[in-house]
Design a protein around this nucleic acid. Structure first.
Length: 200
DNA sequence: GTTAGGATGGGCT
DNA sequence: GCCCATCCTAACA
């Protein structure tokens, strides 16, 4: 069930991003189990990717997490408001990461709604990377944590989607990345109501 | 020490 | 669709 450590060592971060669509992401924070299956991801492909925090081999206290061996989390704050959850992949020293942009919630719905301060299961409850992190209780103290533990992990429950339902397109909010902003490193389920931004 | 800007989301119109 | 909230990170002095 839980994806093994070796799954995350795949050096092809783009292929992994595609494969993660339909996998289940769970957190268990303070005894509260919440999770759902992934419907939207983005790949950030190492030092040659202008959109990556690790572009050009940049190594800082924040980004050093990305250089760890695959199979750990990378959580950081954006715009001073939103925390974002990424999965670090590939081998030690290769800063690849996959941003989880949206999930379809299936477990711990009451807790998710409480964390999001909503009383109904609105589509935007886990739409967008900041929303996913908040809904699952992910914060920066989860940064660099192993995905083999009992706090946060990914499961394969046999859910798959054919290629015709999975769209590849350019990533969101990285206009500063020049040519790399056009790379089709974003994957999402066609017409899924939990997917953010342009969704057709 | 100081400062500019960023993988955004939500609420209101 | 526009506008605002809000603060850490990283680069520079």
């Amino acid at each position: 069930m839980k994806l093994p450590e070796s799954y995350y060592h795949n050096p092809d971060v783009v292929a992994l991003s595609r494969d993660l669509i339909g996998k289940y992401l769970f957190t268990c924070i303070d005894g509260n189990l919440t999770g759902g299956y992934i419907v939207e991801t983005e790949a950030y492909a190492g030092i040659i990717d202008k959109a990556s925090h690790a572009h050009g081999g940049r190594m800082t206290p924040r980004t050093k997490t990305m250089y760890l061996q695959g199979g750990v989390s990378y959580v950081y704050l954006c715009y001073g408001i939103h925390e974002m959850f990424n999965i670090v992949t590939s081998v030690d020293g290769q800063p690849h990461a996959i941003l989880i942009r949206a999930i379809h919630p299936t477990d711990g719905l009451d807790m998710i709604m409480a964390r999001r301060d909503m009383d109904t299961l609105k589509p935007n409850i886990t739409r967008g990377p900041g929303s996913v992190a908040k809904a699952l209780g992910i914060s920066r103290n989860i940064n660099a944590m192993s995905l083999q533990g009992d706090t946060i992990w990914v499961e394969d429950r046999g859910l798959t989607f054919p290629d015709v339902e999975v769209v590849a397109g350019p990533r969101v909010g990285i206009d500063y990345a020049g040519d790399d902003a056009l790379l089709p490193y974003r994957f999402y389920l066609k017409e899924n109501i939990f997917v953010s931004k342009p969704n057709k």
